[in-house]
């Protein structure tokens, strides 16, 4: 009752008709999470930080421009979606953007670590991002979204940390 922003199931069926709305095909982010997982494994194995920097740019596009502008999402629409049956299922964009923002934070810390010679820092930050991406890909579990409430609760003490997108 108290959610004017939330579309009812009926409304979201209508939203599905206009693809550029505030929702996306949920299989797109899932596909992107698998690609992200593979990229982050490659970063850990090779320790080649420019690849992590590229992933940071992908995260940034997903977080600040929106998931539809992420390169992985474009890849999904061009290569994968045409081979799948269309779906009416839709997923809200807000949680996805938040999660991509969390990934961006870890990726930036990782790049700084690797590039400045603090390899351990780079490895740990990349491992956190990998764990989150893999949980999302394999279980559909959005770590960044779940952590939002925790961050926000901490922000009672630390003034508004978690309320930034």
């Amino acid at each position: 009752m108290s959610g004017p922003t939330e579309p009812s199931p009926h409304q979201s069926a209508q939203l599905a008709a206009q693809p550029s709305g505030r929702t996306v095909d949920p299989r797109g982010p899932r596909f992107a999470a698998w690609v992200t997982t593979a990229v982050l494994v490659a970063v850990l194995v090779t320790g080649w930080w420019p690849l992590l920097a590229a992933q940071a740019v992908v995260f940034a596009l997903g977080a600040f421009a929106g998931p539809r502008h992420s390169p992985y999402s474009v890849l999904y629409r061009v290569l994968v979606a045409p081979r799948l049956a269309p779906t009416d299922e839709r997923e809200d964009v807000a949680p996805l953007r938040f999660a991509q923002g969390v990934g961006f934070g870890f990726a930036v810390v990782g790049v700084l670590g690797y590039a400045s010679g603090l390899v351990a820092l780079g490895v740990v930050a990349t491992a956190f991002a990998l764990a989150a991406a893999f949980l999302n890909a394999a279980f559909g579990f959005c770590l960044g979204c779940e952590a939002y409430l925790l961050l926000n609760r901490l922000s009672i003490i630390n003034k508004k940390v978690g309320t930034a997108r």
């Binding site: 494994v41 970063v43 850990l44 090779t46 490895v123 990998l130 949980l135 394999a138 279980f139």
Partner: peptide
């Protein structure tokens, strides 16, 4: 080499956490 082990360990831990959360 270390990186590969970290990657493997991370995936295993995340899989365990995912199964626990799902349960």
């Amino acid at each position: 080499m270390t990186g590969a082990l970290v990657a493997l360990g991370t995936l295993l831990l995340a899989a365990a956490a995912g199964l626990a959360l799902r349960a």
